[in-house]
């Protein structure tokens, strides 16, 4: 029998409880236990950013955070971004700028963008590249993603 810990945390503003083994990453908990599959597994060791979520206001790779470490903390995932009746400006900007193709990296990029704009509402292009350097995309070539972030910054201004 696996020994599981009981964890209580806040996810997208709601209190959530789950059981998990200590070796389960937050990514595994989100996807396999809570069925929040927005965060993706791309490499499972912190190199691609597809699993990016915001933990206590900081952008992290959920594949390198243990589920048990979210006790008493707050997690924001892609699923919590849009309002019930409309998309977040970042989401709109990604759509309008065609900043996605296969889309598997997109939730990670959007969370990284949110983390960036939350602390720096008016980033330069260099800053955008620097703060999104932890997210890999194999399809788009990044150019449209950078433009989407610039537009999102303008829209949120």
């Amino acid at each position: 029998m696996a020994i599981k810990s009981h964890v209580q945390t806040t996810i997208n503003g709601e209190t959530v409880e789950f059981l998990c083994e200590s070796r389960q990453s937050l990514l595994e908990v989100l996807r396999d236990e809570l069925h929040l599959t927005g965060a993706k597994e791309g490499c499972n060791n912190g190199n691609c950013g597809a699993c990016s979520v915001i933990l206590d206001g900081r952008l992290v790779n959920s594949c390198l955070v243990l589920g048990v470490e979210t006790e008493g903390k707050s997690v924001e995932t892609i699923e919590g971004l849009a309002a019930p009746d409309k998309l977040h400006p970042i989401q709109d900007a990604f759509l309008e700028n065609a900043a996605l193709q296969c889309g598997i990296c997109t939730p990670g990029f959007i969370m990284s963008t949110k983390a960036l704009l939350d602390s720096n509402p008016n980033p330069t292009e260099h800053e955008i590249r620097y703060w999104l350097a932890g997210n890999l995309c194999r399809c788009t070539g990044y150019d449209k993603i950078v433009r989407a972030v610039q537009d999102a910054a303008k829209a949120s201004a």
Binding site: R58, V60, W131, G134
Partner: peptide
């Protein structure tokens, strides 16, 4: 060092 995600943690 690394990436923003890794530096944060």
């Amino acid at each position: 060092v690394a990436t923003p995600q890794i530096r944060n943690v």
